[in-house]
Design a protein around this nucleic acid. Sequence first.
DNA 1: CATGAATGAGTTTTCATTCAT
DNA 2: TATGAATGAAAACTCATTCAT
Lengths: 211, 211, 211, 211
Amino acid sequence: MNTKTKRKTDPALAHARREQVLAAAADCFKRRGYHGAGMAEISRTAGMSAGHIYNYFASKEAIIESIIERDMEEMFSIFQEFEDQPGDLVTILLDGLDHGVERHTDINQGALDLEMLAEAARNEKVALLLRESDKLAREKMRSLLIGERSPLKLASMAEIDSRIEVMFAVMSGLLLRKTLNPSINKAGLLVALRPAMKTLLTPFESLEPLN
Amino acid sequence: MNTKTKRKTDPALAHARREQVLAAAADCFKRRGYHGAGMAEISRTAGMSAGHIYNYFASKEAIIESIIERDMEEMFSIFQEFEDQPGDLVTILLDGLDHGVERHTDINQGALDLEMLAEAARNEKVALLLRESDKLAREKMRSLLIGERSPLKLASMAEIDSRIEVMFAVMSGLLLRKTLNPSINKAGLLVALRPAMKTLLTPFESLEPLN
Amino acid sequence: MNTKTKRKTDPALAHARREQVLAAAADCFKRRGYHGAGMAEISRTAGMSAGHIYNYFASKEAIIESIIERDMEEMFSIFQEFEDQPGDLVTILLDGLDHGVERHTDINQGALDLEMLAEAARNEKVALLLRESDKLAREKMRSLLIGERSPLKLASMAEIDSRIEVMFAVMSGLLLRKTLNPSINKAGLLVALRPAMKTLLTPFESLEPLN
Amino acid sequence: MNTKTKRKTDPALAHARREQVLAAAADCFKRRGYHGAGMAEISRTAGMSAGHIYNYFASKEAIIESIIERDMEEMFSIFQEFEDQPGDLVTILLDGLDHGVERHTDINQGALDLEMLAEAARNEKVALLLRESDKLAREKMRSLLIGERSPLKLASMAEIDSRIEVMFAVMSGLLLRKTLNPSINKAGLLVALRPAMKTLLTPFESLEPLN
DNA sequence: CATGAATGAGTTTTCATTCAT
DNA sequence: TATGAATGAAAACTCATTCAT
C-alpha cells in the first residue's frame, strides 16, 4: 500500500540514526566536553554500539562538524525571520533579544558552544566551519543594518561592522556569563541589555558630541 | 656557615620552579589546549623533567587551577587601579577600555581563557575557582559603580548588577570574537564599543524615554 | 510441474555464487593481503552482500582454504599434461619451464601464494592443505622421474627426492624474486634457469667426478 | 670509578631495550605473523609494558622495519666473508651452501622472512627496504662473479644477472620448502643443490652444446 | 535467497602518573 | 632536588560475524 518500503538501504532510517547520534553526541559533549566524552558513552547514549556509529560518521571529529553545521542552519533561520518580519527594524531586533538571551543563557547550549570554540583553537576544520558560520551571520546582519528601513543606513561600513562586532560580542558573551555566574536570569539581564543594544542600533552622534 | 644556602628546601627556588611550570603550562595550553598539551611537552617547555613537576603540583589539574588563581590576582590589580585613579569614573573606565580590548583580543590569552571556561563545564573545581573569581570581579565593579563619584550611585542594586552583567558579557564576548573573526582590530572595535559602554555607565532615563 | 527450477536451493546457482566469491576474494587478497582485505571489500567485489557470503562459506578462513583447494586442482592438471605428453621427458619438462616461469612471476598470483604461505605459519588448517598439495605434487613429479622414459630411472629415491626439492625450490623461489626485484623478466631468467634445470633432470656423475 | 654512569639518558640501556623489543617482536612475528601478533603479546614477550615500547619505536611498523634493517646487515657480513676468503671462488661459494641451507631452512627465520615478504605486498615502506636489501645483495654477488678469480669473468652481464636471479631463487625458495615440506633435511637437499649451484657458477657452453 | 544494520571483541596508540636511582 | 624509565588504563577505531526482515 504505502511506499515500496524497506527494500535496499532505507535513507529514512539512516537519517534517523544520524540524528540519534548527533543528539546523543551533543548531549555528551555538553556534559563532558568534546575530549571528555568517549565514543563508548556516546554510543551508550545513542542506544547503539560504538562500532555502528562509524557507519554514519567517519570519525568523532566528523560528528562535531555535523553538529556545527546543524547549528549554522538554525542560526540562518533566525536571521531569516528578522528579514521577513515587517515593521521597524530596531523594534524587531530588540524584541528578538528575548529569544536571543534565552538561547545564549541556556546552560546546555552554552556548554556545547564553548566546547566547539575551544576545539577551534586546536582543530583547523572546526575553526573554519565556525568562522564561515560567523562570517555568514555578520553578512546577514550587515544587510539588515544597511537596508532601507534601518536608522543606520547612512553610516559608514566600518562603523556598521564595528557595531555588529560589539553586538555579537555581547550576545556570545552571554554564553560565558551563564557559566561564570549561574544565578543570572533573563529578566535581570534585559534591563541593561536593551538600552545597550538600542545604542548599538541607532546613530551615535546625538549621544556623543565629545567622542 | 657560608652562604651554601641551597641545602634542603629553598623556598625561593621552589617558588621560581612553580612559576617556571605555570608559565610553560600556560604557553602550552594556549597553543594546544588543555587536553592537547601533554605533560611531556609542558616539562620540555619548562626545562625540567615531567616527574619533577609532580614535586610542585599534585596533578595536571592542579596546574590549571594555579593558573586561574594567578589570573585572578592579575584581575584584582586592574580593578585596584581603577579604584585608586582620581577623576571622573566614567572617563576612567572608558579610558580603560583600550587596555581591556587589548587584553581580551589577544589571541593567546583568549585561547587560554576559553580552555579554562570549557574545562569548567566538566571540572567542578575549575568551575568553582572561575566563579569565585567572577564573583569578586563583580563585587569590585559594584563597589565602583555605587561609589560617591559614580553617576549611577542612585540606581537600584538590581539595575547595577544588570549593567555589570552586560558589561562583563561584552568584554568576555570579545574573546570569542577574536576566534570567530580573526580579522577584527582594536581600533575598529572601539568605534561602537565606547558608546555602548558609555550607555552602560550612565543613567538610562534621559536616553530612553520610550523604553 | 514446469521448469520453475529455481524453487529451493539450486545447486548450479550455489556453485556459481561460490565461484563468484572465490574469484573476488582471490582478487582482494592479491591486492590487499589476507588480513588487509575485509569482508566488506570482498562482498563489494563479488557483487553480493557480506552477510550472504556466509551462506556459502563458514568464515573468512574457509574462503582462503577453498582458494587453496582450487589451486591444488589447477596444479594437478598441469602435471597431468606432462604425463600425457609423448616424447623425451627432459625436453617436455624444459619446455614447460616457459609456462612455469610465467605462472611464478605473475605478480598477482605471487602475492596470493605468498599470502597463503605466510598464513600457513599461523593457521594450521591452511598449513595442512598446502602441505598436502605439495606432497601430491612431489609424488606426481617422482612418478615422472622414475618412469621408464626418464634418464633418472636408475637413481636412488633419496637422490630423486633431493632433485625434486631443489627444482621446487627454484620455481617457488621465483615468486619471491618478482617481489624482491620487480624488474626481472621471463626471457632473462631462462638463460640460467634452463641449464640449471637440465642439470637437475640428468645424471650427475659425468658432471661431477669430484663430488 | 668507572665511566660516569647513569646521569642523563643512558644510551646503553636504550640500546638494550630496543634489542629486547626487536627480539621479542621477531619471535612473535614468527609464531603469529605480523598482523597476528599484537602489541600486547610483544610487550609481554619483551618483558615491558606496551606503552613503554613506544618510547623506542614510533609504531608497530617501525619495529618490523628495524628487523629488516638488522637482517640486511647480517646478510652483508655474509657476503663480506665470501669476498675476504682466499682461494677458488666456486669452492668457497659451494662450501658456503651448507651455511646457506641452514639459514634458509630454519623454520623460525623462514616464517619471519615470509611475513616480511607478504607484508611487502601491502606496505610500501617494507617493500622498499626489502628491495633495497635485495639490490645490494645482487650487486655484491655480481662483483664476486665478475671478479678476477671467477670462472664467469668473461660472461655477459645479462648472463651474470640471470645466474644470480636463479641462484637467489633457489636459496629463497628453500624458505618455502621448509614450510611446505617440513621433513626435508639439509643433507638430503645438498645432494642435488650442489650440482645445480655448480652449474650456475661455471660456464654453460661445455655442458650444453645442444641448448 | 538476499540484504545490510548491528554488534562487540579486538586493534594500535597515547598519556598522566609513579618511582627507583 | 631531579631524572626519565616504566606503567596501565584509557582512547578511537576496525572488522568478522550474526540476524531480523
